[in-house]
Design a protein around this nucleic acid. Structure first.
Length: 131
RNA sequence: CCAGUCGGCCGGACAGCCGCUGCCGCACGCGCCGAAAGGCCGCGGGAGAGGAAAGUCCGGGCUCCAUGGAAACACGGUGCCGGGUAAUCCCCGGCGAGGGCGACCUCAGGGAAAGUGCCACAGAAAGCAAACCGCCCCGGCUUCGGCCAGGGUAAGGGUGAAAGGGUGGGGUAAGAGCCCACCGCGUCUCCGGCAACGGCGGCGGCACGGUAAACCCCACCGGGAGCAAAACCGAAUAGGGACAGCGCGGACCAGAACUCCGGUUCGGUUCAGGCCGGUUUCCAGGCCGGCUGUCCGGGUUGGUUGCACAAGGCGUCCGGUGACGGGCGCUCAAGAUGAAUGGCUGUCACGUCCGCGGCUGCGGCCACGGGCCAUACAGAACCCGGCUUACAGGCCGGCUGGCUUC
RNA sequence: GGCCCCGUAGCUCAGCUGGAUAGAGCACUCGCCUUCUAAGCGAAUGGUCGCAGGUUCGAAUCCUGCCGGGGUCG
């Protein structure tokens, strides 16, 4: 399985679909031309120290390697953004989430683009009493 | 046996299935990717995180800053003495001060009499020796309680972190190193020691407050930047350099021509000036303007090297109190770059918790069964030597204090 | 991976060089003004000065070590 290596490629995939799962968030984008799917892994510094980050990345990589070829859609790029419980989630559940998440992220009905902050309630200043 | 202190070491093991990255050997189509440089694909063998890989706090190697040298001034660091080392703010041994019953731990240069500064508040006074409450003497007045003037003191009170040696005795009107003893301080001689320093004795009677992690003085050390250094290979575009031609910029004139006497044009000479590792100076030495054409080279994305044989590791002997040094033998031991060194499972050791039983010096110990997302801190990034910080649990050794028994 | 900078009230910052009172503005609370609100005026509250040692009589300030955050690298 080929991997994404450049920052520009990661930014391009982040504009595609996005699906959340228990241990990670999948971003995916269909790609013209290439046939072999490519995977990128993102584990932020907020997740833990270097030991934890490396271990999460290795588990995700091992889970991808355990998938069959038909489970991964072709002609597409994916980015897995790890959550902290990717360290502790049982391995079969990790594989099951990947099997369901990878095709779903390419569905046209999934939300697209980078995650935006959800608006919190309604704006309280708009209903100020006037004299 | 308990308590403590110092030093060293380890920091899961085995097996199965599936993977990742270098290295070595054998194959090696003229295959695939790429603009190129370059890389990829087969089989077998063997290797693959740490004591801190961390923090990036010091010191070196290495590379570049064109090269080489000298001096001064800054700036920064270090600071008892001696040694170790490539080097250090590190380590070892010793000295001094403080703490602890002790093993042991902690701290740090000298100069405050080279100079400058500061010492708030309180207090009379904070560095010049001065006197607030007091104490004492003499004189005067007195309502006999004291008051005033002059003088002598620094023992006592009070303020403060600190009040110009301390304790005791003598002495005195009261006092005071005024005198004496001891302690402290300073200084001199001698002795021990390489030295820091220590010791005996004499002298001085106190003259010398604290702060230098305030400025500073003294001694020693240090050029700067950092492997994203640096070298090589290498699309497009922009920019760069060399050469040729044109002769433009500044300054000057024994020149020539024109002139409205301000200058202009031509010719000739020259590059004064600026920049070049913090600054300055002295040397060598190098670089620096415009337009057109031709050629070249550098270089971004990228690739290769740097990059793993190094102050290396292990063992042993010798020298040394020790840090460490020397000899001999064996060994070759991770090398990624969106970043490899793993994922899953089983068994076991250890640990911990619960239950039950036994022993006991009542602190605990032992045996059996069961549980644990069943291992702390933590992941190489050019390489070494240190320091600091984090760390479940365990092992070994030296030493100190106490208890019991013989 | 290397290098550099910054941590003070809920927020934005002074004070640090040169040591002795922890301050300013906004925000919050209360009061005045106003029919009510805003604005204005007045008052009060709010601080382990990132943490821990050390130097000093005395540390936000000086020294050392940690912790956290940010920037930058042909």
């Amino acid at each position: 399985m080929k991997t994404l290596k450049k920052r520009a490629e990661f930014l391009a995939v982040s504009k595609g679909g996005r699906v959340g799962r228990r241990a990670f968030v999948v971003q995916g984008l269909k790609r013209d031309g290439g046939e072999e799917p490519r995977i990128g892994y993102t584990v932020t510094k907020k997740t833990g120290n270097a030991v934890v980050r490396s271990r999460i990345k290795r588990r995700l990589r091992a889970a991808i390697a355990a998938l069959d070829r038909q489970d991964v859609p072709r002609s597409a790029d994916f980015v897995l953004v790890a959550r902290h419980n990717a360290l502790t989630l049982p391995f079969p559940k990790l594989i099951a989430d990947l099997k369901s998440g990878l095709p779903q992220v390419l569905d046209a009905r999934t939300p697209r683009g980078p995650k935006r902050p959800r608006p919190t309630g309604y704006d309280a200043t708009s209903r100020r009493k006037q004299g």
